[in-house]
Amino acid sequence: MLEQKNPRSKYRLKRQSLPEALADSLRERILNGEFKEGEPLVQEAIATEYECSRMPVREAFRQLEAAGLIVSKIHKGAVVTTLPSEQIMELFELRAMLECDILTYSLSRMTDHHLALSEQILELLEDAYHKRDIARVGALNWEFHRSLYVAADRIQTLALIQGINVQTDRYIRLQLLLTSAFEEAEQEHRQILKLCRNRDPSVVEFMRGHIIRAGHNLLDALSTRKVSGTAA
């Protein structure tokens, strides 16, 4: 466990295994854009910042690399991953393929309890939209999608989808920041839940369009930002 010597430390860690706590904290900072694409993460600096040794930092880095958020480079150490636009779109296309497949299995198995939970999560997500709380939006967006798939009881597929969502989370957050597409996302999620309540199979294609549109809107926004010379 990490002993917090400084009660005013900015980055307090919850009581959990130290490498896991470090990975969680660093993951959120990457997803929020505090660490930019291509930016190096220096073990010694991170260890000093969190007041711990380098050993748990190395383990946290391994977890982040497994999640596709950083990559180890010779002579450079750990670097926040940079994805070309075609690979970003590939992630959204993978999401669409897997999420539509699992939703097909889940739709006929959804109970009122499943739908009630989805409604609760969606209300929290909508509150985050209205407050422009990007960090909560990122986490709750995944929780809402996940809630629609658990009835399928396809554990391996869900694990794959979650891994892809970790990688696309920062781009979803970035898309919302660049396009202010909160209202569109809110409307589409409401429609998805409505179709699920009606056990309407057209929700599968609606979900596909929802995910693919998000990918294209993001790439358009990134392209516009690059052309205007405002890229970070």
Rank of each mutant, 00 (worst) to 15 (best):
A159H: 10
V137H: 05
D127R: 10
A67S: 06
D169N: 14
Q191I: 04
S9G: 14
V80W: 02
A221K: 03
S9L: 13
R58L: 12
K73F: 08
L218E: 01
G215K: 09
L22F: 10
L115I: 01
S72N: 12
K14R: 12
A214N: 01
R12V: 11
E93D: 11
V203A: 10
F144T: 08
L160H: 09
L122Q: 10
L91M: 08
Y129H: 15
Q87T: 11
L83C: 05
I121M: 00
K194A: 15
L176F: 02
P40I: 00
R208Y: 13
E119R: 12
D153F: 11
H113R: 12
F182P: 02
L177T: 11
C52M: 01
T81A: 10
R190P: 07
L195S: 07
P7G: 07
F182I: 03
E34W: 08
I211V: 13
C196G: 08
E49G: 11
S118W: 12
V166D: 02
Y11P: 06
H210R: 06
S108L: 13
E119I: 02
E123I: 15
D153R: 14
A66H: 07
A232S: 11
L83N: 03
T157L: 09
E126S: 00
L158R: 01
N32G: 15
T224N: 15
L222R: 05
E186H: 07
E99C: 06
R208D: 09
E205G: 15
I46A: 01
A128R: 04
R132S: 10
F92P: 05
R170C: 01
I102A: 06
S223G: 12
A47E: 00
A214Q: 02
E119Q: 12
D133V: 05
T168R: 08
G163S: 09
